[in-house]
Design a protein around this nucleic acid. Structure first.
Length: 550
RNA sequence: CGGGGCGUAGCGCAGUUUGGUAGCGCGUUUGGUUCGGGACCAAAAGGUCGUGGGUUCAAAUCCCGUCGCCCCGACCA
């Protein structure tokens, strides 16, 4: 692909606070059509295709069979499970021309059971798993963050059917491992699994796969001592803990390294950084502190805040013995282990920061709990018989009895995964795509393309690499070096080749990686082989972190 | 669904308080000079000011309705 022909333009100016949204908009990956509704431009569609390919390979590896369910479904199907009535307005409903109730699929348990019903009537067919990659629509009350939370999105959803709980659990573990492989192959092996709340899906056991990041929408409870990890929504034990009094009303939590107030403001929300004022309660004994801060335009009622803190009784903070160092303050160094709890319901945009971690782990009871934010990039559920019972799906077991099969379901949002990788892998100039999902593996920057020799050598290298199977983007525009490099940073291709009159004068091309870990000159004649070797090297680095399949 | 904000050129914005027939930056087109981190000069194109109605000699500007988008909550696989 030549940049001169590529559809889409790049923008210099910042457009959003969330970095993946900012970079993917600026880089010409996504364009908003409506609230929570986006079109994907060629670079994003290429990334999505690659993610989908990984998903298909991994689902096939655990014996999945790809199918396709409908987007629009009759109400009767959803009534058969009872969810037509139990789900709220996030299920988009409408009437067809005959006046019949219809809805757009937001998840496909009903469709999966409908498909499997009557074609798996004997125990000999079990277990099996069917999956699809398809558009979902969920009429979210509030979309935000580019592709992080949208109303229409592409999702891989899988449904497994079993004849025993033990069989389901065994398959659940295989799928759990497949998910670990998927995130590792997509370049974010950092994703962790946490216990989750099953919500409207029903069922008992479920896990969410989380990418830890400060912009995440979920609050996680993590114990580094014993490995306990759970979504705050599902951390039932902690509810009975002393800390509950504080944790419950606090909506958002941030734990981080040493930060100034300005840093924290930036993390909390964008516009606070310039006009922030704060009230600090400091305990001299152990350096812990409570810090309330607000946007500059919010009036702070110190009496009210003090009373609130006394009422909230955070076990880590002894307000009675704390000093009030009030006023408008400048940058304040927070301690390296500060947990930041902030509460928007208090006084307008007021936030509460506490300077210690003293909550007890619900599992090992040590006072080691960490609170982190995460983006949910996938989830898996053990559903049980909730749907097969409601919809009357049965099979004949070994004894000739009619029994309802047991189900599991497994989802990954493709666009959210793409945005999450961008969120995790970027610098100030643009995304740094892992080579396994990069829109192109190599970008050739042909500086001074008006120079005939540059043009010819670039075209020749492009052909040589393409013939060897590489995915190559060639920037053949007659633009300045800075302009071209800035665009290249936004494309985020892991390997970059620079050809210019300068390099050709030395008989070389310049080879660099997007993450700046490598920069070398390569003789023209050796270039194709060296570049292909580098591509393989980068792929091997990704694969080194992929666990074995089970 | 509550609270706040915003719709003016492809993008980002000013102009609205005090009505007078639309402007700036970036981008785009053309010509010239530049050339390794978003170059410079010159010329040019591009907008029924979200939309419907009202007031007025005159509306981007004032009034009423309506649609859309953003942020903060509520909610949420």
């Amino acid at each position: 692909m030549k940049v001169s022909q590529l559809l889409g333009e790049r923008y210099k100016d910042r457009v959003a606070d969330i970095e993946s949204q900012n970079l993917m908009t600026r880089g010409g990956y996504i364009k908003q059509v409506g609230n929570g509704i986006y079109s994907l431009l060629p670079p994003a569609k290429r990334i999505q295709n690659k993610i989908e390919r990984i998903l298909r390979e991994e689902m096939d590896l655990i014996d999945g069979q790809e199918v396709l369910f409908p987007v629009a479904m009759p109400a009767a199907l959803w009534q058969s499970s009872g969810r037509w009535d139990s789900i709220g307005s996030e299920l988009l409903r409408f009437k067809d021309r005959s006046g019949a109730d219809m809805c757009l699929g937001m998840t496909h348990e009903e469709a999966a059971v409908h498909m499997a019903n009557n074609i798996a009537g004997t125990y000999q067919k079990y277990p099996f798993m069917i999956y699809q990659i398809q558009t979902k629509f969920r009429d979210e009350p509030r979309a935000r963050g580019g592709l992080i939370r949208v109303r229409e999105f592409t999702m891989k959803d899988a449904y497994s059917f079993h004849t025993s709980q033990a069989d389901l659990e065994q398959y659940y573990d295989r799928c759990y491992r497949a998910y670990e492989r998927i995130y590792a192959r997509a370049g974010i092996p950092e994703v962790i699994a946490v216990k989750s709340d099953s919500g409207m899906m029903g069922g008992k056991v479920s896990h969410e796969f989380m990418l830890l990041t400060d912009i995440g929408e979920d609050t996680l409870v993590i114990c580094p001592e014993c490995g306990y990890r759970a979504n705050m929504e599902a951390a039932e034990c902690i509810v009975h803990n002393e800390a509950d009094a504080v944790l419950k009303p606090l909506q958002s939590v941030y734990t981080g390294e040493a930060k100034t107030i300005e840093d924290v403001c930036l993390l909390l929300g964008s516009k606070a950084e310039k006009s922030c004022k704060a009230v600090v309660y400091q305990r001299n004994a152990d350096d812990s502190f409570v810090l309330i801060f607000t946007r500059g335009d919010v009036e702070v009622n110190e009496t009210k805040l003090t009373n609130y803190l006394k009422a909230a009784v955070h076990p880590a903070v002894d307000i009675e013995n704390a000093n009030l160092c009030a006023g408008n303050i400048g940058p304040v160094e927070l301690s390296a282990k500060a947990t930041v709890l902030f509460d928007r319901s208090l006084v307008g945009a007021t936030n509460l920061i506490c300077g210690a971690n003293k909550e007890a782990c619900p599992s090992c009871h040590r006072h080691s709990i960490r609170i982190r934010r995460g983006i949910e990039v996938g989830n898996i559920f053990q559903l049980g018989r909730r749907y097969t019972e409601a919809m009357g799906m049965t099979y004949d077991d070994e004894n000739g009895n009619r029994v309802n099969p047991i189900m599991g379901c497994y989802g990954i949002g493709v666009g959210r995964l793409m945005a999450s990788v961008c969120e995790e892998k970027h610098d100030q100039y643009g995304p740094i795509w892992p080579i396994t999902i990069a829109p192109w593996e190599v970008e050739i920057c042909a500086l001074r393309c008006d120079n005939a020799q540059v043009k010819a050598e670039a075209a020749s290298l492009y052909d040589a690499l393409t013939r060897r199977g590489a995915e190559v983007l060639l920037d053949d525009r007659a633009v300045s070096a800075g302009f071209m490099f800035s665009d290249a940073d936004l494309f985020g291709c892991p390997v970059r080749v620079i050809i210019s009159p300068k390099t050709l004068g030395r008989g070389v091309i310049e080879l660099v990686t997007r993450d700046k870990s490598l920069k070398e000159d390569v003789a023209l004649a050796d270039a194709p082989a060296r570049i292909m070797a580098l591509i393989q090297e980068l792929k091997d680095q990704i694969w080194a972190k992929v666990p074995e399949s089970i």
